[in-house]
Nucleic acid binder design. Structure first.
Lengths: 186, 186
DNA sequence: TTAAATTAGTCTCACGTGCAACGATCTTAA
DNA sequence: TTAAGATCGTTGCACGTGAGACTAATTTAA
């Protein structure tokens, strides 16, 4: 890999800088290298990372991404929460979450109890089986994440996290625990 | 925004570091905050950025992502290329590209000519109409990209590009122009 | 108290996309 | 020369998912 992607050990070339700072050169607007175009790179990278990880929970545990998100949300939180809450904070459509919830309940990985205070919603939580699955899955996924990002130093990983965080804020993509919990409160 | 996502103006907390460097603390493996999990963050971010951009080419020009990738590839290259080439370097399935090519041809945005050297494939190129569309679209997209990443300084954007480049390399996600052109040669 | 508006969750529908089979063409090796 | 294998692009099929209608329950405002 030499030309079409910025090399780490090189001073960025003109075109590489332009790809994210195009206003500096009017001529650069005329053409666009997909390989330098952030939205494309993010899409491709996300797809690749997802598929690299899905091997862990898809093939081995029969979980798709929505199911994994439900599992992850319930596993991380101590207390039960609603499907809507999961949809909100994972930014997944409620119908997608609904289907995942149904599938996970059939497999007895999660269970739901009626909410006495609001009978429209159900409180979801992991079963004992679900907790065991969660405990078994998490180390695998973290190890896989570790492998994928092993090309970065610890400092670079922190840097990346910080940069992504800024963009997430910029896009108002983040839901604070406080906001989420506020919606949960009753 | 305070707790669940790393704040830019704060020294990263322990858990934030652990999210990408989990081996440092065995206890951290027991739970996983989705908000700190890179694959999830990348997915969410890519989806959001895509949808923010799609307004530019979807609503206004009736282009979906595959069509846009075909357009971008042909617009960036000077010479014509095959559908397979586009599929390879955009990492998009050939059937998806095929459908996009069909749609773009019907709209007379691209055209294809037989390749005398290999009659299985067609050489694709932009029509005059396609070039005009490309020239009109690119500035819009670059401006939109600019807006999305305006929360980052120029240096931070370079940093991000560099970090993504490293991961792309690590995942062998990049296709060099040389490699691509080698497959093209005849 | 009552009616309108809102919300949680489910379900149907339409659509995009990956998979895999296919025909046509080219390449390789016997 | 011929047969087997590879490759390009297309198509049918199945599946996952977002949009939006819908029911039931709750909240708000009159």
């Amino acid at each position: 890999m030499t030309k079409s992607v910025s090399s780490d050990d090189m001073v960025p070339t003109r075109s590489e800088v332009d790809s994210v700072a195009p206003q500096e050169d009017a001529a650069a607007k005329k053409r666009l290298d997909l390989f330098h175009f952030m939205p494309f790179r993010l899409n491709r990278l996300a797809a690749e990372v997802s598929s690299a990880l899905s091997a862990e929970y898809q093939a081995r545990y029969g979980l798709d991404i929505p199911s994994w998100r439900v599992l992850a949300t319930l596993g991380f939180r101590r207390d039960a929460c609603s499907a809507q809450y999961i949809a909100d904070c994972t930014r997944t459509h409620k119908s997608t979450i609904s289907r995942a919830v149904t599938a996970l309940m059939e497999r007895q990985i999660i269970e739901r109890v009626e909410n006495a205070h609001d009978r429209r919603e159900f409180r979801l939580q992991l079963t004992r089986k679900g907790k065991a699955l969660y405990e078994e899955l998490i180390p695998r996924l973290l190890r896989r994440e570790q492998e994928i990002f092993s090309c970065l130093s610890a400092q670079e990983r922190r840097q990346l996290g910080k940069l992504l965080g800024k963009i997430e804020h910029g896009l108002e993509l983040v839901q604070t625990s406080e906001e989420a919990d506020a919606k949960e409160a009753y």
